[in-house]
Nucleic acid binder design. Structure first.
Lengths: 209, 209
DNA sequence: TAAAGACCTACCCATTTGGCCGATACCGGG
DNA sequence: CCCGGTATCGGCCAAATGGGTAGGTCTTTA
């Protein structure tokens, strides 16, 4: 049984969510209020999940909810690309869905959230990943050479500051081989030291920091 | 009804997952094979979800799965902090859970994945957020030490892949001094190689890529 | 089947790195 | 005035690094 508290400024939305959740026998709606009231009631009602419908992420309700350290939080919002929602994940919010999510998605998100998991809509994920996955940049700079999976694996360990010997033992290969791979990496990346290789690799999105 | 294909190298794990999923009436196991075989069967069986148990993210199976563009993919792995798993999200993987996830979590993740949502374990989320959320850094490692302007200058050149001698001539100082600065940087950043110092420096926002 | 590429191993050797000892000099605060 | 932090030099030395060349499997591709 998962107890759910609904917070939505629109009464229509509340009614919609209520009827939606009512179709799932393991859900129990412990309350349904405008956002402010829902937040106020959270302490007392202690629901497993708080389902919030936010008109816009700029809404102060978002920050309010974030600051109150309410943890199992499912948020419906329009602007899934706003960095605000991404930040929200850093402080309690367990799920972010667009307001036009299907009922199956909302139900699944609440269930997953209740178990402690974090749920995202693919769009939200993309906006999170875009800064760190520069994505398919194929500038024919000096090379355009693609590293083999093995080389990427090695480069990743180089970035960790590991020595050739250490890398060798982790991969179960000889350190001679590691040196060979690193030489190939240098050639393909146009680098001449492992440190330079790392920065180039990061710039090209091959590895992350 | 959600059809699930299981891929795990260990027969014990397969049996465990099978019995776990069997308890959910809306799940239907369409197959259970070692990882390679599971990937091969994916086309034919066309499951709604592919559940993979990966021993380690370095496993070539991961890259294999990523390249095959199989989309509804739930991955169980040990090393949830590895950037590899984060990258995996960029190409198909819909869920990443630690291998010691509870049965509730696994079930919830499969259900959410089937509806198209992306599911993460909180740990995985943290490793994704850390690069773009500079805040919340409160690891009193050996670090928290602030680099002097000169040291930052040196670190920046180290990141470019320059050698001590080269840095020395650019700064108009002796290479001994450069080595001294780098030693201080190592101590303050808790690094033990110039490459590691660079990645730590990038992580802490001291330098940029 | 042949060719190509990825992957692994091995050797030699010059250069670089990083740790360790020490020293001088400047500057600001107690 | 002395002390601590910063910046600058010096030498010594073990270890790691990077370049070159040369071989060997294995899988995929043509």
């Amino acid at each position: 049984m998962t107890s759910v508290l609904i917070g939505a400024s629109s009464e229509v939305v509340r009614a919609g969510l209520e009827s939606l959740l009512a179709t799932v026998p393991t859900f129990k709606i412990v309350g349904s209020f405008p956002i402010g009231a829902a937040l106020a009631q959270f302490e007392e009602l202690q629901p497993d999940v708080l389902l919030l419908d936010l008109e816009s992420p700029e809404d102060e309700s978002m920050s309010l909810a974030m600051e109150s350290e309410i943890s199992p939080l499912v948020v419906l919002t329009d602007n899934t690309e706003n960095s605000l929602v991404v930040e929200a994940l850093g402080s309690g919010t367990r799920a972010i869905l667009p307001r036009d999510a299907t009922s199956e998605e909302i139900v699944a998100a609440i269930q997953a959230t209740a178990t402690g998991l974090v749920v995202l809509h693919p769009h939200v994920l993309r906006s999170m990943l875009s800064p760190i996955l520069p994505g398919e940049e194929s500038e024919p700079d000096p090379s355009d050479q693609t590293l083999t999976p093995r080389e990427i694996e090695v480069l990743r360990m180089v970035a960790e500051g590991l020595g050739n010997k250490e890398i060798a033992s982790r991969l179960g290969i000889s350190d001679h081989t590691v040196k060979f791979h690193i030489s190939s990496i240098f050639a393909k990346l146009g680098a001449s030291s492992r440190t330079e290789a790392v920065t180039v690799g990061i710039r090209q999105g091959l590895i992350m920091v």
